[in-house]
Design a binder for these strands. Structure first.
Lengths: 267, 267
DNA sequence: CAGTGGTCTAGACCACTGG
DNA sequence: CAGTGGTCTAGACCACTGC
């Protein structure tokens, strides 16, 4: 078991002293104590001090470790929970969020059936069509912050709901962090792909950006999605990011929207 | 100037007593004090005690009014601010959110240019193509929680960016709350439509749900969006809700996605 | 300078979970 | 029952705004 050193903040007492903690830049850029605590907790998450699904130390324990009051730790955790990095469970503790939980199974999939709720069609069927190693093309390299020609893994898969093929996805991953990932792993793994990434490669997808367009079906889509050539499809290009805000996955999805739709809530 | 009675909560003292406030149902359903305060503030918003853009009473004043501590009021306001109903400005006060502010001008429009940022194309051009009264069809009535045949206002408009037509929208509004709305008002009003609704009709859009599909361009789209027949377009169906969670607008938008895309962030 | 929201603390007590 | 997160209070002080 790895041990982790105590944080190097002893002199924290109150807000004004806390301000000393920051790197003094041109702009003083005051940052409240709880933000600094939030940063320290985030660092522990990044360092893997607590793994996904595990319980983190209690609020009082963290308060003692950081030499601040429980309320300050609380506010830091509040924000991390609001960002879906932590999960609070009253009476139990605070846990590192994971994609493996049933309740947040489809947190990143916004396609839902026109009638009924998700799951009413039964479990999703995931078929890996292809999986290979290759070199990043210019657009893939740019999206993943790689250099042209860096090694990437590419997978193509088909998602079916209620027996009908609905989504065709092309996925690119930087080869280095996913060293050892095989087509068999992808094909045999039951459950969301991001859960596999967590448990096997210590890669946690935390946030994603999607660009959505309408495009006509090509022969590729005709073959797998069983739609006529030229049928309008939703093109969903996603870049997923880790704790460190590194882009770690590029995914191009093609969604049939004759029986499903992309659902979004505007707040 | 309208006056508002003090809230009818005198006996609030602490958490256990506060629980007495609730309607006692089969399930005791404990609700914390700050949630009740949040409800009271929300009621004031609904009643129009403070208008969009106006400052609400200070935290200490509200704490006095509700006989709770400032911290409790604070937590209630925190949640309302997180839901974009209130806007906190340090040193100034807390304000009722409005669609008229420059910074949140396009809070509900997720279409952005492929390159550059929004606004880089210059201001949006809004052209009202048509505006008429009519009776709700079955689907419109269902979306707006009306009865079949209830009177509705319908408008069609074209949004252009940098001189190019990008969005065609059909909008349905229940006639009753928008009594007196004219095509001239819509045509002449500069700024977001939701700002007009606020100032003229006391209707504040607070939340919306969108269903997105890919559809082929029809003759209607060809005529206004200048695309070939059958071109894939993004179909965005939006229902917008008020403070009271009443559906108050149905909007069907058709987006060209050759130079723009729908952008979404997954948390 | 007064008034506002923002931070932090210390302590009390409640609600929920599981042994 | 002990341990956890959740609520509430009272008070001090800080940061920001505008007069």
């Amino acid at each position: 078991m790895q041990t982790f050193p105590e944080p190097v903040i002893e002199p924290i007492l109150a807000m004004p002293e806390a301000a000393y903690l920051q790197a003094s830049s041109a702009t003083p850029a005051f940052s409240p104590l709880y933000q600094q605590i939030k940063g320290l907790i985030l660092n522990s998450l990044r360092a893997g001090e607590w793994k996904p699904g595990e319980m983190i130390p209690s609020e009082v324990e963290l308060a003692g470790r950081f030499h601040v009051s429980q309320g300050t730790v609380r506010k830091a955790i509040d924000e991390l929970a609001a960002e879906n990095l932590l999960l609070r469970r009253q009476g139990k503790g605070t846990f590192v969020a994971t994609h493996a939980e049933q309740q947040v199974q489809f947190r990143f999939l916004k396609l839902v059936p026109d009638s009924g709720t998700r799951g009413s069609e039964g479990p999703a069927q995931r078929d890996i069509i292809e999986c290979k190693r290759g070199r990043a093309t210019a657009d893939v390299a740019r999206a993943l912050a790689l250099r042209n020609g860096d090694m990437v893994l590419q997978a193509r898969r088909l998602l079916s709901f209620g027996g009908a093929p609905i989504i065709l996805e092309d996925i690119w991953l930087p080869a280095a962090p996913f060293k050892g990932l095989t087509a068999e792993q992808l094909a045999n793994y039951q459950g969301p792909m991001y859960a596999l990434f967590e448990t096997e490669f210590n890669v946690r997808m935390v946030r994603a950006e999607e660009k959505i367009r309408a495009i006509p079906a090509t022969e590729l889509h005709v073959a797998h999605l069983k739609v006529p050539l030229g049928t309008p499809l939703l093109s969903v290009e996603r870049v997923a990011y880790t704790y460190r805000d590194e882009p770690m996955e590029l995914r191009r999805g093609y969604y049939r929207t004759d029986t499903h739709h992309y659902h979004n809530t505007l707040g």
